[in-house]
Simulated assay, not measured.
Amino acid sequence: MNTKTIPLTIVTLTIALTVTSGCTESANSQSENPAATQPEDLPMLSEQLEEKAASSVTRIPEDVRQAYAQGIEKVRATGIEKSAKQVGDAAIDAQLTGWDGSTVKLSELWQEGPIVLMWYRGGWCPYCNIQLRAMQQSMDKIENSGAKLVVLTPELPEKAKETAEANDLDLVALHDKDNALARKYGLVFQLPEAIIPAYRDKLKLPEYNGNDAMELPLSATYVIDQSGKITYAFLDADYKKRAEPADVIKAVEAAAQK
Rank of each mutant, 00 (worst) to 15 (best):
K184C: 07
N33I: 08
N144S: 08
L17M: 15
E51Y: 13
Y222I: 08
T37C: 10
M135V: 09
A77L: 12
L152E: 05
S46P: 12
S26T: 06
A27L: 15
L235H: 14
K82V: 12
L132T: 00
A198M: 11
Q30D: 13
A77S: 12
L96I: 03
Y185L: 02
K105R: 04
P154W: 05
P34H: 04
L149V: 05
G210S: 01
S46W: 14
N28Q: 15
M44C: 11
A134N: 08
A69M: 07
T3G: 07
P245W: 05
K141E: 11
R242Q: 08
I6Q: 09
L187C: 00
E32L: 05
S138I: 01
L235C: 14
R59G: 09
G71V: 15
V116T: 10
I60Y: 11
A233M: 07
G123R: 11
A180F: 07
R59I: 08
N33A: 10
G228M: 05
P245A: 07
P157A: 00
T24Y: 12
S56L: 11
S83N: 05
Q131L: 06
P154M: 05
P7M: 01
T5R: 05
P157V: 00
V75G: 00
T231H: 01
V252S: 04
D247I: 14
N129K: 02
K82C: 10
Q136L: 01
I224R: 01
D89H: 02
G228I: 04
K85P: 04
S138P: 02
L49T: 03
E143K: 03
G123W: 09
N129F: 02
I115V: 08
D140I: 09
D178H: 01
S83Y: 07
T153G: 11
S56N: 13
S21P: 03
A164W: 00
A53G: 15
L45W: 00
V116C: 09
L45N: 01
Q257G: 02
Q86A: 05
K240M: 09
E50N: 13
E73D: 15
P34G: 06
C128L: 02
P197G: 01
N209S: 03
D201I: 07
T12D: 13
P206C: 00
V64T: 09
T14Q: 14
G210H: 01
I130W: 01
K74H: 15
I249R: 09
P217H: 09
R242D: 03
N179T: 10
K240E: 08
E207F: 03
